[in-house]
Design a protein around this nucleic acid. Structure first.
Length: 591
DNA sequence: CTGAGTCATTCTGTTCGCTAAGT
DNA sequence: CACTTAGCGAACAGAATGACTCA
């Protein structure tokens, strides 16, 4: 019965969408949906009907005007269109740090040479003799010109984008017109790997229709390939959710076009994720008891598994799959931690059994934490480290598939990442309960959100304008303080006047002055709250946890309970993504 | 000349698209 | 192989500021 309560809003919500009326009516959808629900369990199909217009390709390359020249070894040189296009990719990045990195430059140059004519190849032999500045200046001027366009021109472009969005940005899946997430093919350019990526700077070549696989239902109108081209393949696989795919040649991985998070298929998966996390909640204490027990196991692999799981649970670490060395940046997660990433301190800062973790995580974001652990964990870690070198695995008898297999036995659908979801959501719920007493509700919410972001290590580079904007805010606060003391002085004077004059008029003046003082001090408070919030948020990214780890029903229930408008917490896209939760949740929802 | 009002421009913070990197 | 999670930066929107008009 529960799923009906949940799915209903998902269906009805589309009635609010101006385009939905065509495809959605309650009489049709509800029975269809339920039937679909039943079938899904048995045969794993994700949809029954799927129709779309295919991807949008980036515009073809436009050669540079002749006045924009490339120089080699001080001399101007006209490049062939193929070589020129690749050169522009580099020229556009000239003031980016990437172009100072050796690997980037080396990879770029190697791939660039492949695009050159034999004549160019023999002339252009050293990157450091290449001068792209004219090209760089040209693109800077172009983007400047784009900014300077008139209102009408900008409006025209906007309308054209909207037209493309309406034509290619939606598909029909099972009676619903659904928004597609990324319907544009990635344009060619230079690969921007994160961290010390060995492939950074390599050429990402242009994707052609012949590289594209289309997925849609047999009984739909298939998308047409652009004139004079054909698709690589048109298939009809309703066991998957993607509409378009192609192989990316740098890592050899497959890229997909899929639906927007507001779609039924994504929303339901999201809901399912949180339901799995809630099932974990019911048995987490039992699992904890078990892994604590396993710390004493006589089998090394079980001890390692138990300690790793403790880290995943306590520190919300990622699972840590193994990666191909030399193909990707060197990053690790829990199972792939190495000896060099961990330090043991029997005593530190007045605490016992301190573990110091320092490693590059996903996206090469540094994870640094010192945490006091239980004695048994500490002793086990000492044992795991015995006779090992810096580059050796900490958990040499463990990997993610072993760990996840174990977890699967403890609960259906349980994997390492469910712990992250569970701990993030439960932390938010707890923090909201604890913090909501203090002054500003939004500040409390952000603080709770922040506690989760810290737990999950969601960092960001401090915004480029952080110092300045903080300074501006401080100036505002100082001004407001002056204003306040001035207003207070006036109030005092008015009071004195009223005392001597004792007439109606001066009494009224006192009242207005009182109100002014109140208003100004409220404004001051607001500014100070804003300053605290911003300072605390300097290096923390709240968005990731909000979007991916926090059960939206917790936030919705909190808003309802405290009378906070949902718009204060979720912006438009977030409200679209979490429509299912906004509709179904009442104020006493418990995660 | 002044000050209110209007409109354009710039500045600033937020949103969202992009696509890499995880599970 | 398919799908979720992630930070960056361009685009956008709204606020602040400036230029200008006119009573």
């Amino acid at each position: 019965m529960e799923y009906m309560l949940i799915l209903n809003p998902l269906v009805h919500n589309r009635d609010n969408n101006k385009n939905a009326g065509l495809f959605c009516n309650v009489c049709l959808c509800l029975p269809l949906f339920l039937r679909w629900e039943e079938e899904k369990c048995t045969d794993g199909s994700k949809w029954r009907f799927l129709e779309h217009k295919g991807p949008v390709f980036p515009p073809p390359y436009e050669p540079l005007p002749d006045r924009v020249r490339f120089h080699y070894d001080g001399k101007a040189m006209k490049l062939s269109p193929g070589a020129e296009e690749v050169a522009t990719f580099y020229a556009k990045m000239l003031d980016h740090e990437y172009t100072t990195k050796d690997i980037f430059r080396k990879n770029f140059f190697k791939d660039w040479r492949k695009e050159m004519t034999s004549e160019e190849k023999s002339k252009i032999t050293e990157l450091k003799k290449c001068d792209f500045t004219e090209m760089h200046e040209y693109f800077k001027a172009q983007s400047e010109a784009r900014k300077q366009m008139s209102k009408e021109e900008k409006q025209k472009i906007k309308e054209e984008n909207e037209r493309i969005l309406q034509e290619y940005g939606y598909c029909v899946m099972d009676n619903h017109r659904e928004r597609i997430g990324n319907f544009r093919i990635e344009p060619p350019g230079l690969f921007r790997g994160r961290g010390d990526h060995p492939k950074m700077g390599k050429l990402k070549r242009r994707i052609r229709p012949e590289d594209i696989i289309i997925n849609c239902s047999k009984d739909s109108v298939h998308p047409k390939a652009p004139p004079g081209t054909r698709w690589k393949e048109v298939r009809h696989d309703n066991k998957v959710t993607w509409l378009v795919s192609w192989t990316e040649k740098i890592q050899g991985s497959i890229k997909y076009i899929m639906l927007n998070p507001s779609s039924r298929i994504k929303g339901e998966k999201d809901w399912q994720k949180y339901e799995t996390a809630r099932r974990l909640k019911k048995i987490v204490e039992r699992i904890r008891a078990q892994y604590r027990e396993d710390w004493r196991s006589k089998e090394m692999r079980i001890r390692q598994r138990a300690v790793a799981l403790y880290f995943i649970d306590k520190l919300a670490l990622r699972a840590g799959n193994e990666k191909d060395e030399g193909e990707t940046a060197d990053t690790v997660g829990c199972c792939s931690l190495r000896v060099e990433h961990i330090r043991l301190h029997p005593q530190m800062d007045g605490q016992d059994y301190v573990v110091e973790l320092d490693f590059p995580g996903k996206d090469s974001i540094r994870y640094y934490n010192k945490v006091s652990v239980e004695k048994r964990v500490f002793k086990n870690l000492q044992l795991f480290l015995e006779n090992k070198q810096a580059k050796d695995d900490l958990f040499d008898r463990l990997n993610t598939s072993i760990l996840n297999k174990h977890l699967q036995e403890l609960m259906d659908g349980l994997t390492a990442k469910v712990f992250r979801t569970y701990n993030a959501s439960i932390t938010l719920q707890q923090q909201l309960k604890e913090l909501t007493s203090c002054e500003s509700k939004i500040l409390s919410y952000n603080r709770a959100n922040r506690a989760v972001a810290v737990l999950c290590n969601h960092q960001r580079a401090p915004p480029k304008t952080f110092e300045k904007s903080m300074h501006n805010l401080q100036t505002k606060i100082d001004e407001k303080k002056k204003q306040l003391s001035a207003a207070k002085k006036e109030l005092k004077a008015a009071k004195a006047d009223a005392k001597t004059l004792r007439d109606e008029k001066s009494k009224r003046v006192v009242e207005t002055k009182k109100k002014a003082v109140q208003r100004i001090s409220e404004q001051l408070m607001k500014l100070e709250v804003q300053a605290t919030d911003r300072e605390e948020n300097k290096q923390i990214a709240l968005g990731t946890s909000k979007l991916n780890y926090l059960d939206p029903r917790i936030s919705v229930a909190w808003c309802k309970k405290l009378g906070v408008p949902i718009e204060k917490i979720y912006n438009k896209t977030q409200r679209e993504k979490f429509a299912w939760a906004i509709d179904m949740t009442d104020e006493d929802f418990e995660f």
